[in-house]
Amino acid sequence: MSNVPIPEGLKEILLGFTIEVIRNHPRNICDFALQYFAELKNNESKVKGQKVKFNNEAMQIGSEDEDEEFVAPVINRFARRVSVCAESYDPDNEEESREPMVIHFKTDEQRQRLLEACKYIVLFKSLEQDEFFRVLDAMFERPVAAGEHIIEQHEDGDNFYVIQSGIYDVHVMDNGITRLVGTYDNHGSFGELALMYNTPRATTIIARTSGALWCLDRQTFRRIIVKNNAKKRKMYDDFIQTVPLLSSLETYERMKVVDVLVPRQYTDGQQIIAEGESADDFYIVESGQVRITIRRPTQQEGEMYEVEIATCTRGQYFGELALVTNKPRAASAYAVGNVKCLVMDVMAFERLLGPCMEIMKRNIRLWNLEVKIEPVGAVDKCLRSL
């Protein structure tokens, strides 16, 4: 398939359609697509009067007739087209990487509050420590008044926002009707999609109460976060193709897995999972070794000791048994030397690894059959069912 030429204009047409879907949130995408492409076909003769520009990732669309409406059976009309003034960005461009970084001075108290606010932001979890601190340096605090509009649907994105305090309502206008679709209550982040994909804002976000936000400007966001995501995708996609369990996934499935993997590092002897605890994560060993142990009773009643039953190395995984069976951890795992694992939380595991579930269940059934006869031998033979 790699030798099949891509028809000229296909990427631009699909990008334009994607932007309209994000902007309008149609109830029926098929009907929306039929009407969109029918209108596109009918207006071919008007293309010269519509000012369409393409710039790598970004697309600017304007219309000479700003009030033009399009009536569809399901969607009353397309919203007025708005320009997407997004600069193109090449993650591999070293010149852009050497540009001076933005730094906003912070007191010790402000920096501590910022660290707490950013602790659980998913976009920051895959950053190296120096990149993370560069992001913190570039962020600035913005006080917010009740009723203030932070983001307006269809407008260009300027900042990424991390919530310090306050309640923020998320609104979407659909068919001329504004709906409340979500609320952020004193934690979380928003505004990344428009910056990552060069699309207009998909929602309007209004402060219900007074509060404060930490803001990261568009240019810094793209230079650090977008570049990091591109690097992470390339590196982790190459890696997970070597993992037998994941090698059968389609390309788009692998990309979804890559996007949710979070690197974690462990030092020698550090416990990664504990036998008997509830299961929250699935682990793939990227580097180092992980020692797997189970507890066994001693001859004295009530006392237990740990027995090493297996070792996981690069490309092997552990922690899925409890997630598949919805039971507590059946074994403990410890780092041997310095270890780096790629970690997927339970919700992503259930959502994305459906195609691999039968393989894991089959290994678990093999474990259960053999463990009754020869516990240690069974575990050694069935390393991937741990």
Score class of each variant (00 low, 15 high):
D158E: 14
S165Y: 06
P244R: 12
V258M: 11
L136S: 05
T204D: 12
D169A: 08
Q153L: 03
Q219N: 10
Q265L: 00
H149R: 08
R223T: 11
E148L: 06
Y197D: 07
R223A: 02
I205R: 09
I224D: 12
A230Y: 10
K232H: 15
E253R: 02
L216M: 12
Y197L: 11
Y197M: 08
H149P: 02
M255K: 13
L195R: 01
L245F: 11
L136D: 06
G188C: 07
K256D: 10
D156W: 05
I167G: 00
C215D: 10
K227G: 10
I240M: 13
V170R: 09
E253H: 02
M173A: 13
H187N: 01
A207G: 03
I150S: 00
A230R: 09
H171L: 12
A146N: 06
H154P: 09
C215A: 13
M139K: 06
T251M: 02
T199P: 00
C215K: 14
K234Q: 13
Q265E: 02
H154A: 08
M139W: 09
R218E: 11
T178R: 13
I224P: 08
M235R: 15
F140P: 02
T242M: 04
V170L: 06
I151F: 09
S247E: 11
L213I: 05
K231F: 12
E155G: 04
N175D: 15
I206G: 08
K232F: 09
N159A: 05
L245M: 14
D137A: 11
I206V: 15
S189K: 01
L213H: 08
L136A: 13
T178S: 15
M255Y: 10
T251I: 04
K256Q: 15
L136G: 01
Y236E: 09
A146L: 03
S247P: 06
K231C: 07
R254H: 04
K256Y: 07
Y252A: 03
N175M: 09
I150P: 05
D185H: 01
D217W: 02
R142V: 14
Q241K: 14
D217Y: 00
S210T: 12
I163R: 12
N175G: 15
N228G: 03
N229Q: 13
D259I: 06
K227I: 04
H187K: 12
A146K: 14
K231H: 14
V162L: 01
Y197E: 10
D185T: 04
S165N: 15
R208F: 07
L213P: 02
T203P: 01
A138H: 03
E152D: 09
Q164D: 14
M196D: 05
D174K: 08
N228C: 01
D156I: 04
D185V: 02
M139N: 04
F221V: 04
N228L: 00
F190E: 06
H149N: 05
Y184A: 11
K256A: 13
A138R: 07
D169S: 03
V162T: 04
G147N: 05
M235A: 13
R222A: 06
E152S: 05
R208L: 07
I205F: 03
R254T: 07
I205W: 10
Y197G: 05
Y236D: 09
L261V: 08
N198A: 13
A145S: 15
L249C: 06
K232S: 12
Q164T: 04
N175Y: 07
T203L: 11
I206S: 11
